[in-house]
Design a protein around this nucleic acid. Structure first.
Length: 574
RNA sequence: ACGGGAGUAGUCGAGCAGUCAAGACACGCGGCUUUGACCCGCGAAGCGAAGGUGCGAGUCCUUCCUCCCGUACCA
């Protein structure tokens, strides 16, 4: 991440950035570092499970964890929490790594996998058994569940809880050996079946699963569960700050208890801190739901531009800078929150506004013939890519007798304050000249087919010679020079502000018009050379990004986001 | 009913007993404009409730209310 200040003044890097909201995690770490806790070290980790794609919610965690490491000269490990081979896959590993890099973070050599620690975890578990702290329970899942009790009633201890160390050791060895069927036994820690904290009622540490693991293959048939694997993995990696989302607050006592059991020294072990994860209005952020959208083909894949996944946002044209800025702005707290999607949209527009070249494209063409413009003549106008820097880079824009304007920029009987084209009205063609509509040609069905206009040769460049005021300025493209393209207009995927209000019917809130594909769009000729991934602003329309599927013969652009449209708001009220 | 979290404007979110309760987005009004964009002004809007302790309370105490999480051999 660009952080010129910390590079120039490294000694101040741990101070609060006055331009950004402070957050309690950073404040906590700063204080601990000042006190010399963990020897002043800061080691965080981002622990994705490779069973789905990363989404914008993960971006907050990534920014927090990697950001902390940067601010405090520490380290952030990328650790794949791959303890459930039935749902995980190497393809996800690749996608996740690509997304993190795209977001702008680098884990260097610190790429780890929970599966790297299977042997170590196993040895730790054996020690637990030897210490009389764990036992093999040979009942069914149902029996175990039925005896766990509930919120008001304590659980009852398992009959197998009293097995001897030798018997437990032998049984656990058999579980690992591969001769026992899935589900026949589990290894449980001896917690407290009477605890009011249900999580402490003899938590399961290992289960038998004869499943192929994407990294360890068939080496193991017993797999550790989250509560056992996660904390110990943090400890093995010497993580100092294990930051996770609010739903894990309930796990913290167990997290600490397991660390106690394996003898992790109180002064030198990872500490779990929870924060509120990111949620947005009109958005669904849960891997399970996102997977569902993909499988049910409501979208075209994990990287469909309508998806809130990092790969979808990338394809849509959103910049990593915008996402990082957004994460900084929303702050970090312990309060369940749902951020207004407009905050994201603003961050996207803000960055794109500062970085996108301006070009012209007509999405829904309306033919305009300049009656008094000489046939076969072409006039080229110089137009800067950044209108705020007129002397900067520019391109030539050709004007000829026939051109296209946007259909919605003409109205036969315009309402008040319609600063666009109408019969008898004048309007400016951006960077070119003033034109006046003198005739409307219609098809047999009454639809408008073509506009006949007159241009004012004395207004070259768009400035009328007599200084008369021209309120409206339209974007346009010369017909003979236009580059044809397909443009996909994206809108929000869900119509409801809170699509998951009723989790069973959330698909009913899917926006049937979340994508509109327009073909025959007319791009200005400078875009003939554009490459996939190129981001631009089509003036007066919005920010667009050339899609990965584009070819010279079939150009495809995606609309990242529209420009704010005050006129639409005004017109909509009438 | 049990355990654990959390309540500051429409949405996020500063504030940690003592200026008129930051800032951002959204919203409204106005200005500027060869993008009805950007930008620049201005405005409306808030401490979940009730008690209590302080000269003084979002800030401390008590009670109440509301919301979230928790009984997976998922993470």
């Amino acid at each position: 991440m660009s952080d010129p200040v910390s590079k120039e003044v490294p000694t101040q890097r741990t101070e609060r950035d006055p331009d950004l909201p402070p957050n309690f995690v950073e404040d906590m770490v700063r204080e601990q570092v000042a006190q010399g806790r963990h020897g002043g070290r800061v080691v965080t980790r981002f622990p994705p499970e490779p069973n789905g794609y990363l989404h914008i919610g993960h971006a907050k965690s990534i920014c927090l964890n990697f950001g902390l490491a940067q601010k405090f000269d520490g380290q952030c490990n990328l650790r794949f929490d791959d303890t459930n081979p039935e749902t995980e896959d190497a393809d996800y590993v690749h996608a996740i790594k690509k997304d993190i890099q795209w977001l702008g973070f680098d884990w260097g050599k610190n790429e780890f996998y929970a599966s790297d620690y299977f042997q170590k975890l196993y040895e730790l578990a054996v020690q637990m058994i030897k210490d009389g702290k764990a036992y093999v329970d040979s009942r069914t899942t149902e029996e175990i569940r039925d005896t766990r009790g509930d919120y008001y009633k304590p659980g009852v201890e398992a009959p197998d809880r009293g097995r001897s160390v030798e018997e437990n050791l032998a049984l656990f060895e058999q579980m690992k050996g591969g001769t026992l069927p899935d589900g026949s036994h589990v290894l449980r820690a001896k917690g407290d079946m009477a605890s009011t904290d249900v999580k402490m009622r003899d938590p399961v540490m290992y289960r038998i699963r004869h499943a192929h693991h994407h990294r360890t293959g068939d080496t193991w048939c017993i797999y550790p569960l989250y509560d056992w694997a996660h904390g110990q993995s943090d400890y093995i990696e010497k993580v100092t700050h294990s930051i996770c989302s609010l739903e894990f607050v309930n796990h913290r006592p167990l997290y600490e208890w397991f660390l106690d059991q394996i003898g992790a020294p109180p002064g030198d072990r990872p500490e779990q801190t929870e924060f509120a994860k990111l949620n947005f209005t009109y958005t669904v952020l849960s891997k399970r739901r996102l997977l569902e959208l993909v499988k049910l083909k409501h979208v075209e894949g994990w990287d469909d531009p309508r998806m809130p996944t990092l790969s979808g946002l990338r394809r849509r044209g959103v910049t990593p800078e915008a996402l990082r800025t957004l994460c900084d702005r929303v702050g970090v707290s312990t309060r369940d929150s749902v951020v207004d999607i407009s905050l994201l949209e603003h961050a996207i527009r803000e960055d794109l506004n500062a970085t996108s070249p301006r070009v012209m494209a007509v999405l829904r063409p309306l033919k305009v013939t300049l009656q008094n413009f000489p046939e076969n003549e072409v006039i080229e106008f110089d137009a800067p890519f950044d209108p705020e820097k007129p002397e900067g880079p520019s391109r030539k824009i050709p004007l000829s007798r026939v051109l296209y304007i946007e259909q919605e920029d003409f109205m036969e009987t315009p309402p008040k304050k319609f600063f666009r084209l109408a019969p008898g009205q004048e309007v400016r063609l951006r960077y070119a000249c003033i034109i006046k509509c003198i005739e409307v040609k219609k098809a047999a069905d009454g639809s408008i087919e073509e506009l006949v206009c007159e241009w004012d040769p004395a207004s070259r460049g768009g400035t009328p010679a007599d200084g008369r005021k021209i309120k409206g300025t339209l974007h346009w493209v010369s017909a003979t020079h236009a580059v044809d393209a397909t443009v996909r207009l994206y809108d929000r995927l869900f119509l409801a502000e809170n699509p998951l209000k009723d989790k069973d019917t959330y698909l009913e809130h899917l926006n049937p018009n979340s994508v509109e594909v327009l073909s025959g769009c007319k791009l200005e000729p400078s875009l003939a050379e554009a490459k996939a991934g190129q981001r631009v602003q089509f003036e007066r329309l919005g920010y667009f990004c050339e899609d990965a599927s584009t070819t010279a013969a079939a150009r495809v652009w995606n609309r990242t986001i529209t420009l704010k449209d005050t006129w639409a708001k005004v017109a909509g009220k009438e």
